[in-house]
Design a protein around this nucleic acid. Structure first.
Lengths: 240, 240
DNA sequence: CCTGTCGCATTGGTCCGACCACACACTCTG
DNA sequence: CAGAGTGTGTGGTCGGACCAATGCGACAGG
């Protein structure tokens, strides 16, 4: 069997720095909340320039495991954090824009993830989350709600439901995938002819969905959310 | 209702650069394969220093939408690409190590994603992929296969199945999630007492799984892969 | 005319040193 | 003791210099 030889590309120092920091994370020596030494100290310790170190830190920042703040005091400097949502969202958004994923793929993924989220939410969603979802629903139902605001609330509704599933990973994935098609959905909604009717139909589904989740009927909720997403799918492919 | 005010934090120039490039991507002005101007040209055009530009490029590189090569010729310079897999893998791996996601969450996500992948693969997986999976299976079945190699082949088996589902997004997500727990699985397998028996059992499941997929029995394949993953889950929580 | 070789231009990668903006800590003053 | 003013440490930015890789192109030799 022919072996695929990958180029080694060991040259770039910032990748070595990255590797060094990653190893510390994997070894548990760096935990969330820990602070890194100041750049001016750390760079010579690692034997690299401050620029190279900074590029590595920037990478960690985009991954969402690091934040940096200037100034003085306990909150300053580079700290290890856990903020995967923004990173994942940006990643999927860009790749979707570049065509790495087709609309069909994204919506299929949404179906899979949100089905699962709804089932899980029906099992053990905290009541506060469902109350908050109810509030969102109420605001979505107001007659003079604009398209942009509706889309915003709609996103938050789905993301909230995913978050109440108790699974941080599927929640993150769900919201990231939802975010990636958000501009597209917004554009499609804006081109809708009978907007009040569309909003009403979507709201009816949302209301039924929330009721099913609250009743613990996960299977039916999953089916409904699948129908909900596939319905939107139809709208999107019509528009584009 | 109290509005949460987020700090604006617009100061950092490399984020402005990033935003500028992202907008071009969203607008379709930058497509996969396009080349950016050389850093020394682009930086003054954007009105920033080369360092700031480079940090933005580094971010895009971690997201997997850009690669940069020095030298001369058509392949040199910074090019827009679509390579989300490495980026997503690194992201999930680090966040899993930091405890953003529990083991339970990851395995639940694997169940959801791989169930879907298997069903889709059973529907329309190309025969070549299944043949390749067969080959992987054969090598996993060799009596003197080491734990590390087995884990490697096992990963490739699952990732291959996901890839043959025809959905690039769920495929990427599946392999990234699988990769994120890969070191853990390796460690668990290394601590197994009766390794040949374990390998045999896993292989038996793999064989049945592939047969079901080949026969187009997606439902049963999904059930089996869920059982397969949950079994491994049991091993992992025992060991840890 | 073809061919191989060598120099060179172009590109990203790295490093250094300097300065800026900000926010807290400290000190001085009333 | 309170407040204003100053100092210090942090990330953020900048410009310039040099290094390394790689293909282009000129040039010499067949």
């Amino acid at each position: 069997m022919p072996v695929e030889w990958q180029p080694v590309r060991q040259s770039r120092t910032h990748e070595l720095v990255l590797q060094s920091i990653e190893e510390r994370v994997f070894a548990g020596e760096l935990k969330a909340g820990d602070r890194l030494p100041p750049e001016r100290e750390l760079a010579p310790v690692l034997g690299v320039s401050r620029s190279a170190l900074r590029e590595a830190l920037r990478v960690l920042e985009t991954i969402g495991v690091l934040v940096a703040q200037p100034g003085r005091g306990p909150d300053s400097g580079a700290r290890i954090v856990r903020n995967p949502d923004d990173a994942l969202g940006r990643l999927l958004r860009l790749h979707f824009a570049l065509g790495s994923y087709s609309l069909h793929d994204v919506l299929e993924a949404r179906v899979v993830l949100e089905r699962s989220s709804c089932e899980a939410a029906a099992r053990h969603a905290p009541a506060e989350d469902l109350d908050e979802a109810e509030e969102l629903l109420r605001r979505m139902g107001e007659p003079d709600v604009g398209v942009a605001e509706f889309n915003d609330l709609d996103t938050r509704f789905h993301v909230l439901l995913a978050g109440s599933s108790g699974n941080a990973l599927t929640s993150t994935l769900t919201s990231a995938v939802r975010e990636s098609v958000r501009p597209l959905i917004l554009r499609a909604l804006e081109e809708t002819e009978d907007w009040p009717a569309t909003a009403g139909a979507l709201n009816a589904q949302h209301t039924r969905l929330l009721r099913l989740v609250r009743a613990g009927r996960g299977e039916e909720a999953a089916d409904l959310v699948e129908e909900h997403i596939r319905g939107l799918h139809g709208t999107l492919v019509d528009e584009t």
